[in-house]
Nucleic acid binder design. Structure first.
Length: 908
RNA sequence: GGGCGCUUAGCUCAGCUGGUUAGAGCGACUCGUUUACACCGAGUAGGCCAGGGGUUCGAAUCCCUUAGCGCCCACCA
């Protein structure tokens, strides 16, 4: 037998990479290679990180939580599939590369041209991808890399084109000219939810416009305003509604007229506004209803069009003051409110102010009825039903409301983007006019206003059409369109091969979607939309939302605040296991959590604790004459399984019965909690058991219980907690597991309840703990001399007196029959009598004990009162009454111990 | 303007459908040279569960209300 040589401290970095490599080599991350039958499947698709750079703490949380779920289910015997992938994140990635290009070479994407630029982006994405994969591995994520996907790879592109085609054929996708959100820096449209609002201090201008005064925050858009809108009920303007008159304006005289519309707010500004249909969503709406002309005066690059006369070509927002100066010169500025606060709409990526512009774009109609299984439905209705029917469960539940609030108010989704990086819209046009227009915008900024053409041929298909003269739409898809297909596209949809179909049948709908609550709308809702429409089933049965990881002070982590904690740094310093625990324990779904280095360090201490527990157990048992580790398959010693529960190996002592009972409780409870996705709570309970019960009590007892039985129990408990901990701390547990024979811990089966629950033992042992605690207290109080003599009187044979003796580290224990004690009426089986000498600090101890005794007495009295109250006993459920009685017993037992101690002190 | 949360020990938070004397970790303080671990052990002190009202035998938990804080959504020119 070799002597075990285990280092004193666990250094994560010495083991983790090798362990991950071994897992990967085993092939067990791929469900096809898992041993056993596994009729039930469990699947998660990893929310694909953007290929914009590196992973942050948010990704680390995601990987930790999902890996825990996945490892747990794998050990439970499920056919577990966790698919990794990355997201091309069109707008974010393109913006990033453009920024780099400008910084490093001083070039814009137009300097390179579309093709060369895309090559650059792909290079960047590839590099970023490799970093991400490496980081996921560092975290210990047990992802099936053989199925890795990318939102922009060939299979996913096919899925995108197929989805578009099908929706188009069903009339759910249309091309329309509408005012959209335009980011002049990204040079692209933005969906409604890609617009952020930033509270900004601005000026509010009161301008004379003919006979009335109008209010505006954006005078520069007002060049061609010809229509004043007032509220129909506004008495101030009632007499001029419908009238026309000439007004002196920015560039000379304009013929203006007044209309009434409820959109005008009587209480805001002067109650009168002019409208700019081309550059405001609401004005566009009004113009549409009243059949007004829509003229674009601001172009895609943020400059004025020729419609702005002398200002043409100048940046619109930058010209505001200049235009106001012109108005002022003409005496048209009545006053300026300098303290105007409003919500400026900005691009969620680059914070550039969003410019509303009229553009011809592709939209998904969420309100259009179509036939589904003989019923008329809308996409919106599908999204609502998926959650309302319970087919999808959101955790935490309160996000249901957020979800509905969003879906109910959903407007048509603009899916086309003027980016180069992304899936091209599978639409082709054939007509000289359109074709040249499309060519122009291919690589150029589209300058012409895009009005719908009737003279063009349009082809929508999965592949390019046959024939001459077809030009593909230059636009690309909103990145969330491809992301919305993620659960089905990663499983092979729309391929119809039997293997793909089988795979979809097995793993779809996926079991859980785990992601941050911040992308509930962007992504989760879109997946529900796409998947329910395309394959007629929900994409996942459950949505588990985690919160944001904030810094110690609760601030968001950001580069500008310099408070970013890099997961890789934490892993390097404290190990992946500690990092995972610090992200999972102490945080609950849907709530933000705070992270500090100290917290991670704390869990590093725990991994080391587990390491040393193992070190002790393994070396102790190994040193014994019948080396348990050398026996063939340690399991022969005590399993499988415990026949007839723990009786199979007859634990001899109270401590044995106690620890096994506790272990059984913990197995049951942790299993239940993990099944219910209560990860934090499961982890806490496991930590308490491992540290408080197993390490602090049973290990100490084991040192003096020199029976072979103890070795078996030590090994059994260790084996069980290694399994229980494995989902949380895969590395350290797997490393320790190497001391056992057989397969990797990764695929061991999850512990089951053995039937060792022993309430009597738990009660009795807690009493022993009480007594030992008392002895320790007394020793601590004895500052001058060690305790000379302790006598313990028991009324029946409790072998634990040996333990007490050792633990209390006292000498000279005598054991005898219990005298007919006066206190025995309270309850109890054990009394102690400790004559002590040389004590000086006992007075304080006595005061404390007396106080405790009084509290216990009044507590017992209060229970007695309650129990004699017929209203309580009559109305409270039986279970509660029984509980109360038990509590009374516990308190009485404690009182007995306290009384004993007081008696001891008195007798000094 | 709508909606959703939060307020529990010095700090970070658990406390599910009402039922132990409200818990944990960290921190503080006291003690400890115990052969698994100082990345340790044994203890102690900290709470009117934000305030007020109600329902109930019983409320941190349910209802109403007040105050403070946060988040999401929304086209106020």
């Amino acid at each position: 037998m070799d002597k075990l040589d285990i280092p004193k401290a666990y250094e994560a970095k010495d083991y983790e990479d090798a362990i991950y490599a071994a897992w990967e080599a085993s092939g067990f991350f791929n469900p096809d290679n898992l041993p056993g039958d596994r009729p039930l499947a469990f699947s998660i698709t990893l929310p694909p990180p953007n290929v914009t750079g590196t992973l942050h703490m948010g990704h680390a949380v995601m990987l930790a939580i999902e890996d825990i779920m996945v490892r747990y289910q794998r050990m439970c015997g499920k056919r577990v599939l966790w698919i990794p992938g990355t997201d091309h994140a069109a707008i974010a990635t393109q913006a990033k590369v453009e920024k780099l290009l400008m910084k490093e070479e001083g070039k814009s994407r137009h300097d390179l041209g579309r093709e060369a630029f895309l090559k650059r982006v792909e290079q960047f994405a590839a590099k970023s991808h490799d970093i991400i994969v490496n980081q996921a591995k560092k975290m210990g994520a047990s992802l099936d890399w053989s199925r890795e996907a990318y939102t922009l790879d060939a299979p996913r592109s096919l899925a995108v084109r197929t989805a578009f085609k099908r929706m188009y054929d069903d009339g759910l996708i249309y091309r329309g000219n509408r005012v959209i959100n335009w980011c002049s820096r990204c040079q692209s449209t933005l969906a409604d939810d890609e617009v952020d609002y930033k509270e900004t201090n601005a000026k509010f201008y009161y301008l004379k416009y003919g006979p009335i005064t109008i209010g505006t925050a954006r005078p520069e858009t007002k060049f061609l305003d010809k229509v004043i809108v007032v509220h129909p009920d506004d008495a101030r303007y009632a007499d001029i509604v419908g009238k026309e008159f000439d007004v002196e304006w920015i560039e000379g005289t304009v013929r203006a007229r007044v209309i009434a519309d409820k959109a005008s707010d009587m209480t805001f500004g002067t109650g009168a506004m002019t409208i700019t249909p081309a550059h405001s969503h609401e004005d566009f709406q009004i113009a549409k209803e009243h059949g007004l002309e829509v003229v674009q005066i601001i172009s895609e690059d943020g400059t004025f069009t020729s419609a702005a006369g002398a200002f043409a070509g100048k940046n619109a927002r930058a010209s505001r003051d200049e235009i106001v100066a012109v108005l002022e010169k003409k005496g048209l500025v009545e006053r300026i409110d300098e303290n105007y606060v409003h919500n400026l709409s900005v691009c969620y990526r680059c914070e550039t102010p969003v410019e509303p512009l009229p553009k011809l774009q592709w939209f998904i109609d969420v309100n259009k009825e179509f036939n589904r299984d003989g019923k008329q439905v809308t996409l919106k209705a599908l999204m609502q039903d998926a959650v309302r029917s319970g087919a999808i469960k959101i955790v935490p539940e309160r996000f249901d409301k957020t979800y509905f609030n969003w879906v109910d108010n959903l407007r048509d989704w603009c899916i086309s983007r003027q980016l180069w990086f992304g899936h091209r819209i599978p639409a082709w046009y054939r007509s000289s006019v359109i074709a040249s227009e499309a060519r122009q915008s291919y690589g150029e900024i589209a300058t012409s206003s895009s009005t719908p053409r009737n003279d063009s041929e349009l082809y929508v298909g999965i592949e390019a059409p046959e024939g001459e003269g077809w030009v593909q739409d230059p636009d690309t898809f909103d990145t969330w369109f491809s992301a919305g297909l993620w659960t089905i596209s990663t499983l092979g949809w729309p391929d119809q091969g039997s293997q793909t179909l089988q795979q979809l049948r097995t793993y779809h709908p996926t079991s859980v979607l785990e992601t941050g609550y911040d992308i509930l709308f962007f992504w989760v809702a879109r997946m529900v939309l796409m998947t329910t429409y395309l394959v007629g089933e929900v994409p996942f049965k459950m949505v588990y939302l985690h919160g944001l990881v904030r810094d110690e002070q609760g601030r968001k982590m950001s580069k500008s605040l310099d408070n970013v904690i890099d997961p890789l740094d934490m892993i390097a310093k404290f190990g992946a296991d500690a990092t995972r625990l610090s992200l999972v324990i102490g945080s609950t779904p849907g709530n933000d959590s705070k992270l500090s280095e100290e917290k991670v360090a704390g869990y590093r201490n725990f991994t080391n604790k587990l390491w040393n527990i193992s070190r002790f157990v393994l070396t102790t048992t190994n040193n014994h004459p019948q080396p348990i580790l050398e026996k063939e398959g340690r399991s022969t010693l005590y399993s499988p399984p415990f026949e007839g529960g723990a009786k199979g190996w007859l634990p001899e002592t109270l401590a044995d019965r106690w620890i096994l009972s506790r272990l059984d409780t913990v197995v049951a409870s942790v299993t239940k909690k993990l099944s219910a996705h209560e990860l934090s709570s499961a982890g806490e309970e496991l930590r308490d058991f491992t540290w408080n019960d197993f390490a602090d009590w049973y290990l100490e007892i084991a040192k003096i219980q020199k029976r072979e039985q103890t070795d078996q129990i030590l090994l059994h408990v260790l084996e069980t907690i290694l399994k229980l901990w494995h989902p949380f701390m895969p590395f350290v547990t797997e490393q320790i597991w190497k001391n056992f024979s057989g397969n990797m811990l990764l695929i061991q089966s999850w512990p089951t309840v053995t039937g060792s629950a022993d309430l009597e033992a738990e009660k009795e042992f807690s009493f022993i703990q009480e007594i030992i605690g008392a002895i320790r207290n007394l020793r601590a109080a004895n500052k001058i001399e060690p305790i000379k003599k302790v006598s313990i009187v028991v009324d029946r044979d409790i072998p634990e007196h040996e333990i007490i003796k050792q633990l209390a580290r006292v000498t000279d224990i005598t054991v005898g029959e219990k005298p007919d004690g006066s206190v025995s009426t309270v309850v109890g089986s054990l009394t102690i009598h400790i004559p002590l000498t040389g004590l000086v600090d006992l007075e304080a101890e006595r005061t404390r004990l007396t106080k405790e005794r009084d509290e216990l007495i009044s507590y017992i009295a209060s229970i007695d009162t309650k129990l004699s109250n017929t209203e309580f006993t009559g109305k409270a459920p039986e279970k509660v009454v029984a509980q109360m009685k038990e509590k009374r017993e516990d308190a009485a037992r404690k009182l007995f111990a306290v009384n004993g101690q007081i008696f001891m002190i008195k007798s000094q």
